[in-house]
Design a protein around this nucleic acid. Structure first.
Length: 231
DNA sequence: GCGACAG
DNA sequence: ATCTTGTCGC
């Protein structure tokens, strides 16, 4: 049984053990060079359905111009359990990733990176799985606390858990609640902040997340087809 | 035991 | 995440 199939049959208890093992492989280092391409990944599904729809969209820097997309659908067999999101969404994400021809320099996923009870959020887990730089971008905190941060776009406060820096509460838009970003794999905190800042436009979420969300929804509603396309 | 809890 | 319309505030 390969690793992907393992994720579909694993139980919550074993999933936690696997996270503790994979934790040893976490590497948070600066990107080798300034990124030219960044990508965003997101999932969409209908209430009560196990059919998951994934979208990965690639943008070119510094203008954030869309250059490619990969859409894929797949059945999930793992329920949503806080802390074990990767086991539910990884299979369909890997399917979309594998058919992606133009791999970006870094991938931003919806959810956390190391800002996780065992430092193994979906962005970290996915990064280790495909050995590619990743960043986690979440709308809510899973674990950790942070102090006050200014109200202006770009203001930040570190997310702390058990006296450890695990992420950044980031004001992505003036006067709007912060988003929570954290390194996933092979990416530093500084790169995480700079890359997400560079992906922000006039909205709360980075353009990568917004477009991936839109395309995943189009796929779910039958307004787009599975497959890889370059613009 | 109680409350918290990515998507 | 998804189900859903209008509405309050910067």
């Amino acid at each position: 049984m390969n690793r992907l199939e393992h994720y579909k049959t694993i139980n919550p208890s074993a999933a936690k053990e696997l996270q503790q093992e994979l934790r040893q492989q976490i590497k948070l280092e600066p990107l080798p060079e300034p990124p030219k391409y960044i990508a965003g990944a997101d999932i969409s599904f209908s209430r009560g359905s196990d059919l998951m729809h994934a979208a990965i969209i690639v943008l070119e820097l510094p203008d954030l111009t869309p250059v490619a997309r990969s859409l894929a659908s797949d059945e999930t067999s793992f329920p949503y359990i806080p802390g074990l999101l990767a086991f539910r969404e990884m299979p369909v994400l890997l399917k979309a990733w594998n058919q992606l021809k133009l791999k970006s320099d870094v991938l931003i996923l919806d959810g956390h990176g190391v800002a996780h009870p065992r430092r193994m959020g979906i962005a970290t887990h996915f990064g280790i799985e495909v050995d590619h730089p990743t960043i986690g971008c979440a709308k809510n905190i899973l674990t950790g606390t942070h102090g006050d941060l200014g109200i202006d776009k770009g203001d930040k406060a570190y997310l702390i858990d058990d006296d450890e820096k695990i992420g950044i509460a980031l004001r992505s838009r003036t006067n709007v609640n912060p988003i929570y970003v954290s390194p996933g794999y092979r990416c530093s905190f500084k790169d995480t902040y700079n890359i997400v800042m560079g992906a922000l436009t006039k909205y709360k979420l980075p353009k990568t997340s917004r477009l991936a969300h839109q395309w995943a929804n189009k796929l779910r509603r039958g307004e787009a087809q599975e497959g890889y396309v370059e613009f």
